[in-house]
Amino acid sequence: MATPVRTRDGGSALGRSASRRSRGESPFRYASTGAGIFLLVIMAAIGVFLVVEAVPALQANKGSFFTDLIWEPNGSQIFGIGALAFGTVVSATLALIMAVPVAVGVALFISHYAPRRMAGVLGYVIDLLAAVPSVVYGLWGVIFLVPFMQGPSEFLNEYLGFIPLFGGDLVAGRSMLTASIVLAVMILPIVAAISREVFLQVPRMHEEAALALGATRWEVIKVAVLPFGRPGVISASMLGLGRAMGETIAVALIFPATFGISFEILTPQGNSIAANIANGFGEATPIGRGALIASGLVLFIITLLVNTGARMIVARRKEFSGAAS
């Protein structure tokens, strides 16, 4: 039997010269730390440069940025974020209200109702749909949905017009409602995909415990699946809300680009910060660009608040579910 050959070189058994071997250590470590720090620098730079470019325009503003409903930075140099922020929040919220219940239903369908083999395929299809570029939804919205919505909108206006939301004298396909529907269709796959993943993670024993007590399928879902999945669904919804608020191209094609605040979602009005940037960028003067950048900063802050809120909800829920299990 062969004995391993000793290659020891006398006194330096521990290879003080071994520092040679780990020569690559520090460069690699510095490179990865540096990459992390670089990300922090980018984040800081995003904040700094948006502010730097926005300030001159804000100083030139003859109106009030936070309260004015007009956006004329190129002409009268009066511009305010009010109407745009309103449209952003309302359209995204409407989209969320429409999308989340359906998305949860879809997620439950895939995780608990569909036959197993079909579920795998459907999950994959939902993932693919989440990857469809937003401009495609926008194209579909403007070519198909806008004319299509004329009829249903008139119907809603005529029979449910007593509800302020569906009121108004003039009804059009290009409306807040249509934009919200497109947004809802866009965020639905995202919310559904995350919710499905969370529902599939429900510990098998929780479900079996409920089944063993004689629970029906709905009762299993109510007792075991939904409580476990709630933080995941909430964070998925908030993520969807953030996406909807930041969505640009699809709504830029659909919004009538008016400036005003109205809850009559069937009437031809509505706009959002992102859509306004896309539509107004082409012919913006330097002041106009600054104003658009300032509005982008506001959008950034709103989405930041939404995302932070989502994370806090999830963190708090986690503590509870952790204590319970």
Partner: peptide, 20 residues
């Protein structure tokens, strides 16, 4: 001490120790 040499001496690298 491995054969009289301290594994935790400041100039000894853990990587070299683990090869031994």
């Amino acid at each position: 001490l491995l054969d009289g040499e301290d594994l935790y001496a400041p100039d000894v690298e853990p990587v070299a120790v683990r090869r031994m």
